[in-house]
């Protein structure tokens, strides 16, 4: 019997994929393995605890936000680098290249990655479309991590970090006038009640990894392990597909409620944003040394062949 914990609420697509994973495992291994999914914060863990919680077997399987594990393992920070990958294809390529390094790091902390799951990219939701680099200047924008704050500040915005619970009241009272988050969150927060525009800036395509404690995994028979890996692969494919679809679907929902969606940004804006994001990459390279350099050089070569 195994517990699987996610931070996310029942309606969230990550939670849904976790449930699907548990369901398929439970069906395939009836009477042998039973996975129970705990949604939301039911087990009292925070994002930053999750990676080590698997290591300690507090919860044997967890959905871990990679970006939250950077204290122990800086290498995972790559997936949240702002304005680095430009679309899902690039994100997948980057993951494929980095995957062996991620697996090694996970093994160091007594766990194994069952599958990875991307988030829909964060867009800028505001009272105007972001067309030029200049448009970012003066935005009172809510961000959720260090990278977002640093990059948007550099672009002249008043970036403030705010808990999700404070976002809606702050928008309603004009304490902030824009939010950096996924369109899924924009739908959840019913942003159309207060905002008018969504601009797809591909801030980042953050990744979660669904990890299992290695002791628990080794307790499984060879056959059972294979089933875990196989279903994990299926879930990975599933989540990559639905994350991309979710972005367009949620944007359509926002549009139906009267928001204007800008899906393409100018080269000027994209270029300047990427340049601003370079600092974060450089800092990451410093922390990860040779591993970081390896990943990046492979990525830069193969990125050109994409399309």
């Amino acid at each position: 019997e195994l517990n699987l914990a996610t931070t996310y609420s029942a309606a969230n697509m990550h939670a849904e994929t976790c449930r699907e994973f548990a369901k398929r495992i439970n069906e395939a291994l009836t009477g042998e393995v039973l996975i129970t999914v705990h949604e939301g914060g039911a087990l009292g863990l925070k994002d930053e605890d999750r990676f080590t919680a698997v290591a300690d077997n507090i919860v044997p399987i967890q959905s871990v936000l990679m970006g939250a594990a950077i204290g122990t393992s800086p290498v995972f920070g790559l997936s949240t680098s702002p304005f680095f990958v430009k679309n899902f294809k690039e994100a997948k390529l980057l993951l494929d290249i980095a995957r062996p390094y991620y697996e090694k790091e996970a093994k160091k902390f007594n766990q194994r990655i069952l599958y990875t799951a991307p988030w829909p990219p964060s867009s800028i939701h505001a009272k105007k479309a972001i067309k030029k680099f200049e448009d970012i200047k003066g935005l009172r924008i809510r961000t959720y991590d260090k990278n977002g704050t640093a990059v948007l500040k550099k672009a002249g915005a008043n970036a403030v970090v705010m808990s999700w619970g404070d976002v809606y009241p702050a928008l309603a009272t004009n304490t902030i006038d824009s939010v950096l988050t996924s369109s899924q969150s924009a739908v959840a927060g019913k942003f159309w009640e207060v905002l008018s525009d969504t601009t797809r800036v591909y801030f980042a395509i953050p990744l979660n990894m669904i990890n299992i404690n290695l002791d628990e995994f080794n307790k499984l028979s060879k056959k059972q392990q294979e089933i875990f890996i196989k279903i994990g692969n299926d879930m990975e494919a599933r989540q990559w597909k639905i994350a991309e679809e979710a972005m367009t679907k949620d944007e359509a929902k926002c549009a139906a409620k009267g928001m204007t969606i800008t899906t393409e940004i100018s080269d000027e804006l994209a270029g300047k944003l990427a340049k601003n994001g370079q600092d974060v990459i450089n800092a990451w390279l410093k922390k990860t040394g040779k591993i970081g350099k390896d990943i990046l050089s492979k990525f830069e070569t193969q990125r050109k062949n994409l399309k």
């Binding site: 122990t72 991590d145 260090k146 704050t149």
Partner: peptide, 8 residues
Amino acid sequence: RNLVAYTP
């Protein structure tokens, strides 16, 4: 483990 908060 050099645990850090998931914050800026």
